[in-house]
Design a protein around this nucleic acid. Structure first.
Lengths: 131, 131
DNA sequence: CAGAATCCTTAACGATACTG
DNA sequence: CAGTATCGTTAAGGATTCTG
């Protein structure tokens, strides 16, 4: 191994081509999927409950989000043919397995938030300086 | 506690308001940040090396991405005033601490990809059915 | 209540050209 | 090489209205 700069060692997660990470990232990337999964990790929710819990999500986006999660097999959608319609969403086993990772991200986020904010302040302060 | 449906138990990760998860998610959400972090986890990279390694990223987006990562304190940018300019990017300790989580996501992704694809095929097949 | 449909605004992204 | 600047496209998301 020559010293100095990069020799491009074995990629941590082969991302030479898109071998799957992107698929998951695209689902985690959108604004609401993770938040919904996190909420559902606490238990079964009806549509309106979800919307209140996530706070900020429009009804349209919540619909789209749960549909995509359902399509990916992360949540189940159960319709009860009652007089006011009642639909319950629940995490599948697959969905629950993701919860641990999401929890990890949340923990990391909370733990390192001060550092990140400090770095941002430092950067922004530097940027304001003319010379 | 009444039985039946949801009583909204304690949130897994308090997301009543946005208490930090979103900040991290927004950085994970964009198309390239994670890929760049993953590449840098393998070692120091120059700008062009990164662009080749990530494959698909435009020079503009790579610039924006590394700038944001630098602002957040996840990577360092070192300029060597050589005759052709040479800039090296490297993960900070903070950046490295994120690597574990990203690796976890990648592993999960690879492990459960078949399940997700199967679920999608099933969903799409069902959707095509007229009745 | 749960949702489908429509319209509209924004910003993420990509391609190209130019610079130190 | 490592950017910056500009432009055009597209997709994500929000607001609103209507329906079973």
């Amino acid at each position: 191994m020559s010293p100095g700069h990069t020799e491009i060692t074995a990629p941590v997660v082969s991302c030479d081509d898109d071998c799957g990470i992107r698929d998951v990232l695209d689902r985690l990337g959108d604004k609401w999927s993770v938040l919904v999964v996190v909420q559902l990790a606490a238990g079964v929710h009806r549509f309106k409950e979800l919307q209140r819990a996530v706070d900020g999500v429009s009804q349209r986006m919540l619909t789209l989000t749960v549909r995509r999660l359902e399509r990916d097999g992360l949540v189940t959608r159960t319709v009860h043919p009652t007089v006011p319609p009642q639909v319950e969403y629940e995490l599948t086993a697959l969905g629950h397995s993701l919860t641990h990772l999401v929890k990890g991200l949340a923990d990391w986020s909370l733990a390192h938030r001060p550092q990140i904010e400090a770095a941002r302040r430092a950067w922004d302060a530097k940027a304001d300086m003319p010379s």
